[in-house]
Design a protein around this nucleic acid. Structure first.
Lengths: 189, 189
DNA sequence: GGCATTTTTTACCATTTGGTAAATGTTTTT
DNA sequence: AAAAACATTTACCAAATGGTAAAAAATGCC
C-alpha cells in the first residue's frame, strides 16, 4: 500500500485524512496466471495497482494473431483508462502474465474519491499523462529500428521482465515472430 | 480562430469573456516549408494551432537517420507539450512540411491563461490526454503489421496528407525505406 | 518421478525488406 | 527556358524476416 501512496504523492499532495480515505476504498485481489483483469468487449471494472506480478495488454488483429501491446509490472497502475473512465467496452484484454496481487478501486469508489478529494482530478490527469508519455517513448523506437535493436531496447526498458514472461509475448510486442526473436537472441549471446 | 475555439470548447466550457481573453493572447505566425517551429536542443517557445499546412515531429537516431515521428495538420494543436510545459530542451524537431500558418501562444501568456481561467488546467489535461491517446492508437498498429498494411492504415489515418508530403517522410514514419515504400505503392496500384 | 503440455530452439526455404546505384520525374531557382 | 536541386522510381543483389515443421528444453500436473 505504501508503494502505491508514494507513487500517487509524486503527482500532488495529500494529507493523512485523504490518504486514509483513499486506503479505505482499496481492495486486495489476486489474479492467477492467464486470468483477465479486464476483457475486450467488456467494461473494465477496476483501476489496479500491481503489488506483485506482471500484466500485459493484448488484442487480436484482423489475422487473428494475438498482439501484446504493453507490459505493466510491480509498482505501477494498470488500467484501460479510457474505457474505465467512460465505462465503455474495452478493445483490449488486460491479462495476468504471472500470478498477480493487485490493489483495486472499483468505479463507484473511484468516482467518490474524485468528488471528495480536492485536486484529485488534476493528480489523475498528471498520472495518465505521465503513463501515456512513457508508453509513447517506449513504443516509438519500435517502429524505426531493426529487430535486434528493438530487442535490446526492450531489455533496457523492462530489465527484470525478460525472464518472467513467455518469449512469444515479447516477440509480438516487438513486432517479430518468436522464431526470429529466438534467432536474434542466439546471435547476441 | 473559430476553428481553434471550437476545438477547445470540446474539452470544457468558456464564457465570452474568457474566449476574448484567450484570443487577446494569440498571435498569427507563418512558417515556410522546412522552417522549425521548435528544435531539438532548444526550449520550445510556442503552443501552436495549425490554421494551414502540415508539420512533422522528427529526430535523428543513432545511425543519423532522420526519423519522422508524427504529422500534424490543419485544425490541430502542435507542440512538444512535455518540453514546452517544463521549458526544457526538446529532443525532437517540429518542422513545417509545407508553408504553414499558425496561431501561437508564448509561454508567458500560456501560463497567464492558466492563472486566469478557472478550469483551464483541467481542459488542457483533457486535450493532452486525447492527443496522446490518439497518437498511441495510430502508432501501435505500425509495430505489428507488415509494411503494406501500415501504408494503407496511414492513408486512412491521414487521408489528405499523402499528396502533400514527401514520400521519404512517410517511409520513415512507417518504419521502411523509401525504396520499399515506392515498391509497395506500385504493387497496390 | 514420470507423463503430458507448453515453450523455445533449430532447420529449411520462400518472401520481404534493406542498401547501393542509376534513371526518371518533378520542383525550384536563375 | 534552362539549369540545378530535389524527389521518386526502378533494378540488382544481399540481408533480414516470415512460415512451416520438427526437435529439444522447460514447465506443470498427477
Amino acid at each position: 500500500m505504501e508503494a502505491m501512496i508514494n507513487l500517487i504523492l509524486q503527482f500532488g499532495d495529500l494529507n493523512k485524512q485523504q490518504i486514509e480515505f483513499l486506503l479505505s476504498k482499496v481492495e486486495m485481489l489476486e489474479f492467477k496466471k492467464h486470468e483477465y483483469l479486464s476483457e475486450a468487449g467488456k467494461i473494465p471494472r477496476y483501476v489496479a495497482f500491481v503489488v506483485e506480478g506482471v500484466f500485459r495488454f493484448c488484442y487480436y488483429n484482423n489475422k487473428s494473431e494475438e498482439i501484446t501491446n504493453y507490459f505493466v509490472d510491480e509498482g505501477n497502475f494498470v488500467v484501460d483508462n479510457e474505457k474505465f473512465e467512460s465505462q465503455m467496452a474495452a478493445s483490449e484484454y488486460v491479462q495476468a502474465v504471472t500470478d498477480c496481487k493487485v490493489l483495486v478501486f472499483n468505479k463507484k469508489d473511484w468516482d467518490e474519491i474524485s468528488n471528495t478529494i480536492v485536486g484529485w482530478e488534476m493528480m489523475k490527469a498528471k498520472m495518465v499523462k505521465k503513463c501515456l508519455t512513457l508508453a509513447m517513448e517506449r513504443r516509438s523506437p519500435l517502429i524505426s529500428e531493426d529487430a535486434t535493436t528493438r530487442y535490446l531496447s526492450f531489455i533496457k526498458a523492462f530489465p527484470n521482465l525478460i525472464n518472467r514472461i513467455p518469449l512469444s509475448y515479447v516477440a509480438s510486442y516487438l513486432g517479430v515472430t518468436q522464431q526470429s526473436l529466438s534467432r536474434i537472441r542466439r546471435s547476441i549471446h
